[in-house]
Write a protein that binds this DNA or RNA. Structure first.
Length: 1097
RNA sequence: GCGCGGGUAGCUUAGUCGGUUGGAGCACCCGGCUGAUAACCGGGAGGUCGCAGGUUCAAGUCCUGCCUCGCGCACCA
């Protein structure tokens, strides 16, 4: 390994390279070794958001993992110790649904008939279905994470930690039992999470009804609207907006063409929001009175179905209540409130003390005692009956007007949630549920969130901040089977115990047994899942039996416990936990904002009164090439292996990072991966190959020979300066989370500066057989560029650069130091703070020379300009020009040779007499001119632009005597541009901006001389012969025998013939100045009227 | 419906404090160059900067409204 002498590089096969390297890494235990190499480094704590192995991984998972890996590898190279424990999310509804579908257990009854233990076992097995697929993907993409010792949310230890956390909340009074209105399917007996509900929205047309609520002690009725007539028996209140204006109107004239049921008699009076009169009323009416909603509050009305709901203790039942969310966008401005069947209704009912009783059972049928015609019937089939009952004379309660209690019916088209399994409409239904009182810790949540470094900031401040500012209590229980069971036992009187550990469970079971309640054994390794834990009956302090609340927890609670449950805190791993909380870095898709990002913070705040993480990178959604979200149902998920097996993981990862900002949606384009491969990696490989091949040929050993940077050529010092500049920017962008910018710039540097300029310009330097100092300097330069580039690329795309780095230095890049310093290795450093100065001293970059960089930029621009001149003048590149002049601009004498070669010009000189080639042109500077000229600016600008004699105008401006349309023109008001005079093959470029702008011109001599024509012909012939050599697959050092015939050729001088011989490695060469004698199989070509035949042997 | 983020060439995208000629890359066409790689260089074609107003001497950029895509929230009487 110590041998650092590079061997030559072969042709690139990225996939073979990567798979072979994976094997090497495995053998060397490279991941572990990279962490341990920073054994004394400051810890940088990463927390893996646990994926579920319940489905096959797609390319979108690769993206998230790429960013996790990138930061961890980067920080490792900076000297930090970055442990990466893997994790798996194994509980929850998705698992159950998968199993239910597979085993055709589509209802709770079916599951229970099958046996909860069998069902949960099936779930337990199911979660590992794709584990190997995940593992293979993870390894292949080189996401370094410890999958051999992951945390798994179904593990007893993990569950025990969750129980402990729950008990902390319970003891703090943050856990409570209540109701939550949830979309519920009576057929399957389950309620649904919002995610599933979202799957089942369907547009349906249903009857909506306008109902009269007859006031007590008043002849008028209040009109309210509902789209769910089945909730009307449960009505116990009416909500009005206190600020909304209502009117009391009297029916003056019957409506024509009445459709459907309902109606009102002349003289009848109703109350509704003024804004909605036109939409609601079909009759002609007169307004009797106008008043704000607040004056209606407290009025009592007759219950529609007097027997349906008992009044109980309520003093507010069947009265008008105020609610600020009531609007006049639809309905009547009065909201019918059935406490148990709407979220707003429920919250209002709880706040106002309305009676909370069901009129509908869990089976979706009206409870007995609601109304003789409704009892026991499925609610969705009762719409018509309800309408008929209301329409009857006097209405359903017999206390309404002659015309009944229905004012109107109207069909209503809306999106309504349906069961995605049975297609039945869901009912919003108040269920028993457990809550974490997040509203009690809202201020702390906000405070902790303020301390998080979010990338991008707007997710933290905006989306997440908004969510926290509106935080609601967390409905944490699910009436399901496969999950962490809620560790609360309860007796009939509502006494409760929350169990926080296995030991506590054992002691409580023992107590219960002692009190005479039979119980199964409760061993140390008791399975903390259903149905086992349901089997224990505990005893209350009063000696009453307590049964476990039959819920499991929201699986988001599980993953929210990851920071401590992964270590089995507080039962084990206390030191590990203490040293790693809160974590330094998490990274997931933006869809986790209300998911994991929230539950981590929610749990850490309620349990520890601390934040859970310090930095959070929130990634954008991954879309397919058409911009559609990748999802299983769309079937547009890209298989990562398509790319792993074609362009390799390096290119796939680099593409993902460079395709856009991490937080922007990424349109995953397969072509882009290919482009990245061809551009970035093939180029890098060929630069490397260029270096390695010659280094091997010459026996170059970077440790043996030396080359002082200051003494190297300006080309070397330029590329090294560019390297330093690029690396500095790269690092600065990394710190800003701008990985896309960093990597785009680095790629640009490799392709443009290194490959297309430095290597191209340096090729001949290495052809020299002798051990010249210039050749050694070039080799050192290439060596330094490549090793540094490898280190910069390594966190993003870890394969190829490791192969290169190993060959060039004998060491893996993944234990190499970050070129910009290793702050993590400094004494006293933490993940958040270190001595910047000391860190800067550990950086390892060549010196920067910005003026050299600027000069080279100009040289390259002039080279481009020169080529453009040739194209425009129709002069072929191989025919030399006798002379070129550079007019004005900075001194770049040291690059005249390069320019001469690039442009195929014999001599480059500086010419100071601008006017020999150029004249000036004036352009207005709007920024300076506008404040002075105001509205005349365009007129003034026009005068300047179209000046008949710009030279004279400039002189007058410089003399301070120029005035246009009353505006005094100063030098700063105009921009002087130089354009070449007619007849010159010339072109002008501008460098710099504003006051520093300079015009530089390049002029080429287009005259031919015998000497030039000879050289040009020689170059053309050489080029053809080289192409032939290539076609014949000759080795670079092979020699040839050459014979050449020409016709109508310019004279070719001896030194040019010799040049051909040298360039083409001709051992023997015969030149004929006529065409006769050329064999018919000779290659021939024509250039500028000359024909040439040649043979190569 | 509300909130957030987008809409720039056929595709992917850059565009700073508003400054008059909106840059790249891919693909395409023409030419050049090549012991230089799936390359390189020059040129060309391709843009109503989503639409409509407004502010301004000047708008891709600022303001308003609308359309559209994605995401989140809500679907609510």
């Amino acid at each position: 390994m110590a041998m650092a002498r590079p061997h030559s590089a072969g042709e690139l096969d990225a996939v073979a390279l990567e798979t072979a390297l994976l094997e090497t890494w495995k053998q060397e235990n490279a991941f572990r070794a990279s962490i341990d190499s920073n054994g004394n480094g400051a810890p940088f704590i990463f927390l893996e958001g646990p994926p579920t192995a319940n489905g096959k991984p797609g390319i979108h998972h690769v993206v998230a993992r790429a960013y996790k890996d990138l930061v961890c590898r980067w920080k490792t190279m900076e000297g930090f110790r970055v442990e990466r424990k893997g994790g798996w999310d194994t509980h929850g509804l998705p698992v159950e649904i998968e199993v239910q579908k597979r085993m055709d257990l589509m209802s709770n009854e079916a599951i229970e008939a099958y046996g909860m233990d069998n069902f949960n076992q099936a779930c337990r097995d199911s979660v590992w279905t794709y584990e190997s697929a995940w593992r293979e993907m993870t390894e292949r993409m080189a996401y370094w994470v410890d999958l051999d010792n992951p945390y798994v949310t179904l593990d007893n230890n993990y569950v025990e930690s969750c129980w402990w956390a729950m008990k902390q909340m319970f003891d703090k009074g943050l856990l409570y039992r209540g109701h939550k209105v949830l979309p519920y399917c009576p057929q399957t007996g389950t309620s649904y999470s919002s995610h599933e509900v979202a799957l089942g929205y369907k547009e349906v047309e249903e009857p909506s009804v306008y109902v009269k609520f007859k006031l007590i002690d008043d002849d008028a009725s209040i009109l309210a609207w509902t789209t769910t007539p089945w909730t009307l028996p449960g009505n116990v209140g009416l909500a009005v907006g206190p600020e909304v204006t209502y009117v009391r109107v009297r029916i003056t004239e019957q409506a024509e063409n009445w459709i459907g049921a309902g109606g009102a008699s002349d003289g009848e009076e109703v109350i509704l929001a003024k804004d909605l009169m036109k939409d609601v009323l079909r009759h002609n009416v007169e307004i009797i009175e106008e008043f704000p909603g607040s004056s209606l509050v407290g009025r009592s009305y007759e219950p529609l179905f007097p027997d349906a709901v008992p009044r109980g203790e309520s003093t507010t039942a069947w009265t008008v209540l105020e609610a600020d969310w009531v609007t006049t966008t639809d309905g009547t401005g009065v909201v019918h409130t059935a406490v148990m069947y709407g979220e707003d209704d429920y919250n209002l009912g709880m706040a106002a003390g309305l009676p909370a009783y069901h009129t509908v059972g869990m089976d979706g049928a009206f409870l007995a005692g609601t109304h003789p015609q409704l009892d026991g019937r499925y609610v969705k089939e009762c719409d018509q009956t309800v309408i008929e009952l209301l329409s009857a004379k006097g209405g359903s309660n017999g206390k309404g007007p002659e015309s009944g209690l229905l004012y109107r019916e109207k069909s209503y088209l809306h999106d309504y949630p349906h069961c995605w399994r049975t297609d039945h409409p869901l009912l919003y239904y108040a269920m028993d549920s457990w809550f974490v009182r997040m509203t009690a810790v809202k201020e702390r949540l906000l405070e902790f969130n303020d301390g998080v470094e979010w990338a991008p900031e707007w997710v933290g401040e905006g989306r997440f901040g908004e969510w926290l500012r509106n935080v609601k209590d967390w409905a944490i229980s699910r009436e399901r089977y496969w999950g962490t069971p809620l560790p609360v036992w309860r007796d009939d009187e509502g006494n409760m115990k929350c169990i926080g550990s296995i030991a506590e469970l054992q002691s409580e079971v023992a107590k219960a047994v002692a009190a005479g309640f039979e119980n199964p054994e409760c061993p140390d390794d008791v399975d903390l899942h259903r149905p086992v834990v349901d089997g224990y009956t505990l005893v209350s302090d009063d000696g009453k039996p307590m049964h476990r609340e039959p819920f499991v927890m929201d699986c988001w609670f599980d993953s929210g416990c990851a920071p401590f449950a992964q270590w089995h805190h507080p039962f084990e791993g206390k030191e590990t936990f203490d040293a790693s909380f809160p974590v330094d870095y998490i990274c997931e898709g933006v869809d986790q904002t209300r998911g994991w990002f929230y539950t981590l913070l929610a749990v850490s705040t309620t349990v520890f009164d601390q934040p859970a993480y310090k930095r959070c990178l929130s990634l954008g959604l991954i879309l397919d090439a058409e911009g559609k979200k990748m999802s299983k149902s769309r079937g547009n998920i890209v298989d990562p292996w398509d790319h792993f097996n074609r362009e390799g993981a390096d290119a796939t990862r680099w593409y993902m990072v460079t395709a856009g900002a991490p937080w922007n949606p990424l349109k995953f384009d397969s072509n882009g991966v290919r482009e990245t491969y061809a551009k970035m990696f093939l180029t890098l490989w060929n630069v490397y190959k260029f270096h390695a091949d010659y280094a091997a040929l010459d026996g170059f050993d970077p440790e043996q020979s030396t080359s002082d940077v200051a003494s190297r050529s300006s080309l070397d010092r330029w590329i090294l300066s560019r390297l330093a500049t690029t690396a500095n920017n790269y690092h600065a962008d990394f710190k800003q989370w701008n990985f896309h910018k960093a990597c785009r710039d680095l790629e640009e540097f490799i392709v443009n500066d290194v490959s297309n300029w430095y290597v191209r310009r340096s090729r001949r330097r290495l052809w020299d057989d002798a051990e010249t100092s210039d050749k050694v300097a070039c080799q050192h330069t290439l060596h330094e560029i490549l090793t540094t580039v490898c280190r910069l690329v390594a966190p993003v795309s870890p394969f190829m650069v490791d192969v290169i780095h190993r060959n060039l230095t004998g060491k893996t890049v993944h234990q190499a130091a970050w070129p910009l310093g290793i702050p993590g290795s400094l004494d006293g450093a933490t993940a958040d703070e270190w001595d910047e100065e000391a860190a800067a001293e550990t950086a390892n970059l060549p010196p920067q020379d910005m003026s050299l960089e600027a000069t080279m930029a100009l040289v390259r621009e002039l080279a481009e300009v020169g080529r453009r001149i040739r194209v425009e003048a129709g002069r072929r590149q191989r025919l030399p020009c006798a002379q070129g002049w550079i007019v004005s601009g900075p001194d770049m004498a040291e690059f005249h040779d390069i320019l001469a070669e690039e442009l195929n010009v014999e001599l480059i000189e500086v010419e100071n007499d601008l006017d020999r080639f150029q004249q000036i042109e004036l352009a207005p500077n709007f920024r300076a001119l506008a404040p002075k000229a105001r509205s005349e600016v365009n007129a003034v600008a026009g005068e300047i632009k179209n000046a008949g004699d710009p030279t004279a105008m400039l002189a007058s401006i410089q003399a301070g005597t120029c005035e246009i349309l009353g505006v005094a023109i100063e030098e700063s008001d105009v921009e002087v541009r130089r354009i070449e005079r007619e007849g010159f093959a010339a072109s002008t470029v501008t460098i710099g901006q504003g006051d520093d702008a300079q015009q530089i011109s390049l002029v080429l001599d287009m005259n031919d001389t015998p000497d030039l024509l000879s050289k040009g012909l020689a170059r053309d012939i050489t080029r053809r012969i080289q192409a032939m050599r290539k076609d014949l697959n000759l080795a670079i050092e092979a020699t040839i025998d050459l014979e050449i015939w020409t016709k109508d050729a310019p004279e070719m001088f001896e030194q040019d013939r010799q040049w051909i011989v040298t360039e083409t490695r001709a051992a023997a060469a015969v030149f004929h100045s006529e065409s006769s004698g050329a064999p018919s199989n000779a290659e021939h070509f024509e250039v500028d009227g000359t024909t040439v035949w040649f043979t190569v042997q």
